[in-house]
Amino acid sequence: MAHCIGFAGYSDSGKTTLVAKLILEMNQRGYRIAVMKHDAHGHYKEAAGTDSTTFVESGAEAVVTLSPDGIHVFEKKRNPSLEEQLSAYAHLDYVFIEGFKKEKHPKIAVFRTIEQSEIIQALEPEPIAIATDMDDFNFQLAAFPSFDLNNTPGIADFIERYFGSK
């Protein structure tokens, strides 16, 4: 079963950049990673003009595109659950989850401003760690392990320790 860890923060907090860097770091350590991203507002769209978009717009319930290096799946589904999707990637080492603030998996709170740091109080359960690049953030006051947002190896080490990997 893959270890699941989330990265939660408000818009422009650095979540995507951190997850992308962690994918590279964890791949170098020999892990296989999947990413699940929450699109809470339904903004994701298939690329305009592609065959798969034409099929979706024509009313197909599912479109599966197979290419030499991967599969892309689009499936219409009301209120898909994160838990249901995670089971499809249980064969991997880790699933990094971006967003899904209200789900119960362990999360690292990510923020770049004092306003964004309110994510710490917004998460239930509370985060297992925080990652920020704020120079003036008082790490001593934080009740959680705290990391510089750019310390990708340190965050990867924490994730390995948290799950008892390696």
Rank of each mutant, 00 (worst) to 15 (best):
M1T: 15
A2C: 13
C4K: 00
C4E: 03
C4D: 08
I5Q: 07
I5C: 03
F7Q: 02
F7L: 09
S11V: 08
D12I: 05
S13Q: 04
G14Q: 05
K15G: 07
T17R: 13
L18S: 02
K21N: 14
L22Q: 01
I23T: 05
I23G: 00
L24P: 04
E25Y: 01
M26V: 06
M26Y: 04
N27Q: 11
Q28C: 03
Q28S: 11
Q28T: 01
R29P: 05
Y31P: 03
R32I: 05
I33E: 00
V35R: 09
V35P: 07
V35L: 15
V35T: 15
K37S: 08
H38V: 11
H41S: 03
G42I: 04
H43A: 06
H43Q: 12
H43L: 11
Y44L: 07
E46S: 14
E46T: 12
A48W: 07
G49E: 06
D51K: 08
S52V: 04
T54Q: 07
T54L: 10
T54G: 07
E57N: 13
E57I: 01
E57P: 04
G59S: 12
V63I: 11
T65M: 11
T65S: 12
T65H: 05
P68N: 10
P68I: 10
P68A: 12
D69H: 15
G70R: 10
I71D: 08
H72K: 14
F74Y: 15
E75M: 14
K76W: 05
R78E: 12
R78M: 08
R78S: 09
R78P: 02
L82T: 01
E83C: 05
E83I: 09
Q85V: 04
L86F: 02
L86Q: 02
S87H: 11
A90R: 13
A90T: 12
H91I: 12
L92D: 02
L92Q: 06
V95D: 01
I97A: 08
G99L: 05
K101Y: 08
K102W: 07
K104Q: 13
H105T: 00
P106D: 02
I108G: 05
I108A: 02
I108E: 01
A109E: 02
F111Q: 03
F111M: 09
F111G: 04
T113P: 06
E118R: 15
Q121M: 11
L123N: 03
E124K: 10
I128C: 02
I128E: 05
I128P: 01
I128R: 07
I128L: 10
A129G: 10
A131D: 12
T132I: 01
M134H: 10
D135S: 14
F137L: 06
N138I: 14
Q140I: 09
Q140V: 10
A142M: 15
A142H: 07
A143S: 13
A143H: 09
F144G: 07
D148T: 07
L149H: 09
N151M: 09
N151D: 15
P153I: 12
G154H: 08
G154W: 00
G154S: 06
I155L: 07
D157G: 00
F158S: 00
F158M: 06
E160D: 13
R161E: 15
F163G: 03
G164Q: 04
S165K: 14
S165V: 14
S165F: 08
S165N: 09
K166E: 03
